[in-house]
Design a protein around this nucleic acid. Structure first.
Lengths: 328, 328
DNA sequence: TATATACATGAAATCGTTTTCATAACTGAT
DNA sequence: ATCAGTTATGAAAACGATTTCATGTATATA
């Protein structure tokens, strides 16, 4: 494979000049520029990007961490991020943490090894204090996930508000016994915030929350089905359910209908995200502007990489939207 | 940031020895090994991976090209591939071609720039002859997409069989006027093969195909909705539809029900893939073993990278499964 | 005892670029 | 005529690792 030296030799010039042409430096005469371009063409020369990265100390690569891709929320996010990255001529390294602290930490080494210019976290398995030290090695941007202690750019939503809006809608519809089921396993901020919103709305309405109304760790269609049977078997059945994802809501409704429930009369269900399946299932849901979320996060990242000074904090908060369909 | 020289100095040894420890070469005494490890620890040393890649001429990175991630078929594929890659200690570079020839070709440059060790194509926008030359620069594996001219490893399904199975099922149910709607835009092999299977089944059953029974370029829920209205407006409406994806099938059923159609009595619909939504919609579908497809492709890739000799051809064909639910 | 072989280490070359530094020619202003 | 600044080019250093080659010592073999 041809190297820059081969090109230089063929053009009868120095490596430096060839490099200048590649990098569009000024101060190369048109004449030599032509010679170089011809030689590159003839040799089918493409610069070795590892050599470039080593020398330039830049990789033009951004890593994005998601828990699991088949969660449509995250695949939408990644799709958008790749688009924006491509626009800005960055590559995307894709990593799944699988809701696993160790996995997340091990992927963080990519930053230290200079393999990437920056890192976007869409979820955080570890506490921020575990992650913060890695800021020495490169910029980190939070997307969806947030942490008010963290002094880094972030694009996210006010999850407390999200939980509040959804719960309030159910209360407005006249419900009193409302189950809350979180989507994110573990104690993520996202999940905690949403739960806080639920509690706030319930308290404001003067409803006291029963312990058997709180569920966690369900975040799939299967989880929604399981949830149905748990509720079905309660002595006092709730009249409404707030779920942390359209998946869970869909599974729940599916299984409920199979068991003869009429939705929303026997059970009202509200989802979260407004994924494509929400429309198909006629799901009332709290819509997150996923597209905008991903775009903003990637733009914050690129901005930070390209500006020399460190942007310590730049928080973008996007709005929710309540989409009312037939499940409430 | 500490370099290998810093570590060597601190340990009172040469860079060579430090490198040997990093790479687990034999012929390093336990004593020195300890010294090196301690020095690495104290300096928080992590090797610069760009330097390693440059010198080793290996990147431990595999690129995977998909058209668009939000197609659940592809996000499942990528999810699995990342898992397998992580097992084998490879990184995943993620690229979307957006069903665009140019985009695909421009991403192919990654191979020439030595940025990746290999490339998995899950779809092919360009003809194989356009892609073949890049084999000089590194291995390419086909996944889902296939081409019998291509002498490269591939994991795929017999799409002719897929089209046949689905159509035959509709024929078995007594249908005669069956619409075919492909999912893949353009003239991909996958799409062509499936169509061939449809034609084969129809011919075998002695049914002649009407031109208004063939649709292409629909591959989303919205596309399914549009398809419904097209069919609805036909003078002679078909009694069954074979769709190339569960998305299209779902959109079609959704809109049909909205317009008072009973499924499957007024219109039978069969999907493709068996995505999660298929169960929710009660969709009969031709299941593709996506998980296995992704795993096999990634394994073929790693195998080829790690074995020194070129494996010119290693074709793995996986089986379909017909999942019968309520839509037929 | 001579000699091949395994073990252990380091100096220097190498991977393929970009960057720094040096040099020189040309331009325009004083 | 001199000086400063712009334009144009190349030699050599640098990026941070691994690999090759050379050398020395300990051990086993004939």
């Amino acid at each position: 494979m041809a190297t820059i030296s081969d090109v230089a030799e063929r053009a009868g010039l120095s490596r430096t000049t060839v490099s200048r042409v590649i990098n569009q430096h000024p101060y190369v005469s048109e004449e030599k520029k032509k010679l170089v371009k011809q030689a590159m063409e003839e040799l089918q020369y493409v610069p070795n990007s590892n050599a470039q990265k080593l020398r330039k100390q830049k990789t033009e690569t951004i890593a994005v961490y998601v828990p699991r891709l088949t969660n449509p929320f995250f695949s939408q996010l990644v799709e958008t991020m790749e688009e924006v990255a491509a626009e800005k001529e960055f590559q995307l390294l894709f990593c799944q943490t699988r809701y696993n602290k160790q996995q997340e930490l091990s992927y963080l080494q990519l930053l230290r090894g200079k393999q990437i210019d920056g890192l976007i976290l869409t979820s955080m398995e570890n506490h921020w204090t575990e992650i913060e030290p890695y800021l020495t090695y490169g910029p980190i941007v939070l997307c969806n996930e947030y942490d008010y202690e963290a002094k880094v750019p972030m694009a996210h939503l006010d999850q407390v508000m999200g939980g509040y809006i959804g719960t309030q809608h159910l209360i407005d519809r006249g419900h009193q016994s409302i189950v809350y089921c979180s989507s994110e396993p573990g104690g993520s901020r996202v999940s905690k915030g949403r739960q806080e919103g639920y509690i706030k709305a319930m308290h404001q309405a003067g409803i006291s929350i029963k312990p058997e109304w709180m569920y966690t760790d369900q975040f799939t269609i299967e989880g929604g089905k399981r949830l149905f049977y748990r509720l079905h078997n309660l002595k006092e059945r709730p009249t409404a359910v707030f779920t942390g994802s359209d998946e869970v809501a869909s599974g729940l409704i599916f299984e409920a209908r199979k068991n003869g429930y009429r939705i929303p009369d026997d059970l009202a269900v509200i989802g979260f995200d407004d994924q494509p399946v929400a429309e198909l299932m006629g799901l009332t849901t709290v819509k997150q502007p996923v597209h905008q979320l991903g775009r903003t996060a990637m733009e914050l990242m690129v901005e930070q990489i390209q500006s020399s000074q460190k942007i310590s904090s730049n928080r973008v908060e996007l709005p929710f939207e309540l989409i009312i369909r037939d499940s409430t």
